[in-house]
Structure formats: C-alpha cells, structure tokens
Design a binder for these strands. Sequence first.
DNA 1: AGTATAGTACGATAAAACTCGTATAGGAGC
DNA 2: GCTCCTATACGAGTTTTATCGTACTATACT
Lengths: 127, 127
Amino acid sequence: MSAVRKTESTGLDGEPADLPEPLPEPDIADLRLEAILGALADSLRLTIVRKLMLEAQAYDHPCGWFGLDRPKSSLTHHFKALREAGIIRQRQYGLERRSRLRRGDLEARFPGLLALVASWQPPSDKK
Amino acid sequence: MSAVRKTESTGLDGEPADLPEPLPEPDIADLRLEAILGALADSLRLTIVRKLMLEAQAYDHPCGWFGLDRPKSSLTHHFKALREAGIIRQRQYGLERRSRLRRGDLEARFPGLLALVASWQPPSDKK
DNA sequence: AGTATAGTACGATAAAACTCGTATAGGAGC
DNA sequence: GCTCCTATACGAGTTTTATCGTACTATACT
C-alpha cells in the first residue's frame, strides 16, 4: 500500500474529520451483500449511485443536484434506502442533506461491484 | 480470442445442442442488471447460485441436489425468479427440472458479478 | 396398471416495498 | 419576525414479493 497523506485527523473512509456527523448507517463490517444488491435493484437508485460515482466533484451533493424528476418525499425514500444499505453516507449541512458514495468501504468489501454500476445503462426511458 | 473446440454443433452459451429445450428465459441481450440484482438480493437465492457456481460438477442439477430445507412450492418460486432474471437456465429431463448457471452469459454481460457471489458468505444462520 | 417421485400450478395470506400528497421542521436571509 | 427553501415525517393507497398448503401432472419403475 502506498503512503497516504494525513494532514490532520481523518474520519470514516478516509474523510476529513471536521464534518457534520453522518446520519445512522451500517458499519463497514456489517455491510450485507443481499441488502446492497436489493438497494441497487432499481433504476432510479442505480442512476443516483452511478451519478455519484461518475460525476461527483467536490464530494457531498444535495438531493437537488441529481436533477431527478420525482416528488421530494419519494426521493427521501430512495436516498434513505441507499444509506441504510450502506451505499451512501449522508450528512446534514444546514438546510441540505448531502450524500456521497461510500466508495472505499464498498470497494473494500465488494470489489468490482461499483464497476458494474458504472457500466450500467438506464433502459431507454429513465421513467 | 483463443480457438474453441467445437466437436459438433453447439447451442446457447457454448452448450451441446442435443439437450431438451430450455424453459423460457431472457435472451442474453435482454438481461437487465436491475432484474439480476433483484433476483440476487436474497440469501436463499444467493445460496443456490453460489452452489451452482462452486460445486456444480456434471452441469445441470435438479432441485433436490441443493439440499434446501424449504417446501417444494417455495423452491419452485425461487428457481423461477432466478430463471426469469436470466441467471440460471432450466431444462426438463424426464421428471426432473435441472438448472445450470448461465455463467458465460453473465460473465459476458456483467463481468465480475459472479465473483461477488462466489465471495459471499451466508449470515450466521442460513435460515 | 398401480405406485412412487420430482416438481408445478393455483391460490390465499402476509409482509415488504414503492409512490406520493400533505403537513412539518428548521436554517438562511431580508 | 416573517418568508423562502431543502428536505423529512407521517400516513394512505397500491403493487410486488415471499411463504407455503393443497391439488395436480407427468414420468419412472415394478
């Protein structure tokens, strides 16, 4: 393993520690493949994860950044499903609840899984 | 690509052609990641697929070979779910309906997916 | 033919998941 | 304080999935 620069203390998954506390989520050791596959078995959620993986820039994006055309209460539902499965981490930043992919955790526990999501293409109509 | 020996004619996924017709299943081009992940999001079905992948010997195993402690009608349900998602192929051999993994198709369309299943471990109690 | 066998089909029940309207919370900015 | 904004919480209706008993079909065997 190559040396990793740690300027200050670091938090979960190599993140800086000076961030709001994450919302409740499963520990990396408790990630269950069944639960994760179930959470990914949905094209809207695949879209979310894929976008986080391929287009996330500065880390941590609010719900609106995804540009999903669904009622807000539906989106809350899907983001929560992803978080409870352990796929994303969510933090509260003032008004916004921002999400990031738990990329390191997922790759450590299920190597290759994210590559599958990356290569996924939505069905002709994204519904 | 290396040369593949074809003694006689071959059928789907490189199988010999002189086999009973497979039960209805999606074509390789129609495999949907969402559907496949959904079918795998279950520990009993993961157990089935994993066993097919790691222990299948002569190809094509009947339902009883798996040694699953569930009512027969439940097993029918789960095998059908796997077949309709495109994960297994089923053929009727007299009394028995035997299953095999669509290994080549899956690896071609979703490389790395089966490796995830292979590394899966059932939760402490297989239920 | 009669019996055992492997597995399906049907159907009922129950549990889980999806969808989304409405109401609400709470920080941000004027 | 008042309003705007992002997002949640609650709850209801709908759909999907799981579970499994019972009845049945079709083949194999004697």
